[in-house]
């Protein structure tokens, strides 16, 4: 998962795409994931960390991860 370089994320979970002017609100887990992704952490490391900290089965996380990617793609936030 690689966000477009100019995407601005805030601590409150706001995401701003300066190329389109769109704003987004992330829920706490999505905000956490995006913040880590911006630091350059790769997907496997982020997922391992979530599995360690949250009460979720690996299969469920994989499904939800794919769905998050789909949303990011749909919102034009991913570096293709």
């Amino acid at each position: 998962m690689k966000l477009k370089p100019n995407i601005a994320t805030s601590e409150a979970g706001f995401i701003f795409n300066p190329a389109t002017g769109d704003s987004f609100a992330a829920n706490p887990l999505a905000a956490d994931i995006l913040a880590r992704a911006k630091t350059g952490l790769d997907a496997a490391a982020i997922k391992a960390d979530i599995l360690a900290r949250y009460d979720v089965a690996p299969g469920q996380l994989e499904k939800d991860w794919d769905d998050l990617l789909a949303q990011l793609r749909d919102f034009n936030l991913l570096d293709q």
Binding site: S10, A12, G13, F14, F16, G21, S23, A25
Partner: peptide, 11 residues
């Protein structure tokens, strides 16, 4: 500014 809009729209 977009930050003010975000405050209203999200919170």
């Amino acid at each position: 500014d977009h930050t003010e809009f975000q405050q209203v729209a999200a919170l």
